[in-house]
């Protein structure tokens, strides 16, 4: 299956792209997507305990199951206001 990945702020800078697409095996979770990206960009690994994840623009957990066509967003610690 194919998922759309969105990265923000410093995560986007590290990966060099705001929007990505990745092929994943069935049964993949948000964590599967994260591990894939962290393997591609080792600097991302440092964010493992601090990153938040959203699936289809709703907050989710790393163990959330992903379906074909889902949008998975990884969010570094926030600083709005």
């Amino acid at each position: 299956m194919r998922v759309k990945v969105r990265l923000f702020a410093r995560l986007r800078d590290i990966a060099g792209a705001a929007d990505l697409a990745r092929e994943l095996p069935g049964g993949a979770t948000a964590g599967t997507v994260w591990n894939l990206l962290a393997a591609e960009h080792p600097e991302l690994a440092a964010y493992r305990g601090a990153v938040s994840v959203a699936v289809n623009a709703e907050y989710a957990r790393m163990d959330a199951r992903i379906a074909d066509g889902d949008e998975v967003a990884f969010l570094p610690p926030v600083s709005g206001g």
């Binding site: 601090a50 907050y59 610690p77």
Partner: peptide, 11 residues
């Protein structure tokens, strides 16, 4: 610098 505050967790 990117400012990074809280890890967002509504729960």
């Amino acid at each position: 610098v990117w400012i990074e505050g809280a890890t967002a967790d509504p729960d």
